[in-house]
Design a protein around this nucleic acid. Structure first.
Lengths: 172, 172
DNA sequence: TCCAATGATTGTGTGAGTAGAACGATTGTT
DNA sequence: AACAATCGTTCTACTCACACAATCATTGGA
């Protein structure tokens, strides 16, 4: 099994970094070549999304809040929820989520209401201002990088079809 | 210009979240359809890389250090560098980088040496242990998600070709 | 009726990471 | 020679996010 980026000696200062990969793509991708192709695809995808088009800072600055708050707000804007639901979906500390929702509420972006039938629960929903802020964050995060727009129509269609099929797969 | 995720009214508690997008793909992708396709591709790519295959926590736990430290170590393992170079490439606070390299050094993963001709500069390089740790992080980050392995050989080849061409584009 | 469990909150502590000021050693420029 | 600039470090302050204990109000179950 190949391990991406594996090295056997440290490059010395001033030497060009070694680039262990870039094997030629075999004519048939079944067999060993498919694994290498998948690794290359994954590395390129990660570079595209994480290294070249990191948008979190841009979102945080545009909204004047931490990215985590913006993330929470985007989630709340999608569907009002209980605090416990939010904590679970955001994989967040419940007490800290209380502080985050406090802050969003203070900014007029969300509001808390009593659950209709369970007085222990609070329902958090987005205000109009919150919806607008979430839309701004979504616009930033959702705008494709220029690189995608340089693709030919055929390549974009291929990418669209393939990524949509990947997105349709069940999680886990 | 379309804005991804734009909404006009907040869903009420208990209502299904609205899904404003999923337009049909036009037969020719020039024109308005190309923009929507690119947005969909981008959303799916982000979901694939960020939402479904977030590896930072896994790397941090495997190496027993923060992800930022692992990131710094991976960078140092690629090519020994001056502190100022590292700070620039990692987009980090210089004083904080001193602390991070201190920690990596204490763990025996990197070492500092004097620059051969400029005594102000320190060169940071990875030790054998550091190379091994960086390789572990790279293996975790570099292993493709199972979803990629379910693609047909033709689809994987298409994805490989397209993402490699995207990767080859110059960075702004 | 009584007690366990739940939901949300308050309080405290901690590590990570950013930011700026200041410092000493060294190099670059005039 | 003198001074500006650079490099790396020390120091301090701060926010962010996580973690846990404790609390109170409320609901669920025996």
């Amino acid at each position: 099994m190949t391990t991406a980026g594996q090295q056997t000696a440290a490059p010395a200062y001033g030497e060009q970094a070694r680039t262990p990969e870039t094997p030629e793509i075999p004519e048939t991708l079944d067999g060993p070549g498919a694994g290498e192709a998948a690794e290359r695809v994954w590395r390129n995808l990660r570079a595209l999304v994480l290294e070249r088009n990191e948008r979190r800072k841009e979102v945080a600055e545009a909204l004047g809040m931490s990215f985590f708050r913006a993330k929470a707000l985007r989630r709340i804007a999608r569907r009002p929820s209980q605090m416990s639901e939010l904590a679970a979906e955001l994989a967040s500390d419940r007490p800290y989520l209380t502080l985050v929702v406090d802050d969003l509420e203070k900014r007029g972006l969300v509001e808390r209401r009593q659950h209709p039938t369970d007085r222990r629960c609070k329902i958090v929903s987005a205000t109009e201002a919150g919806l607008a802020a979430a839309a701004r964050a979504n616009a930033i995060l959702g705008s494709p990088p220029a690189a995608l727009l340089t693709l030919s129509a055929a390549d974009l269609a291929d990418l669209d079809r393939i990524t949509s099929s990947l997105a349709a797969l069940p999680q886990d």
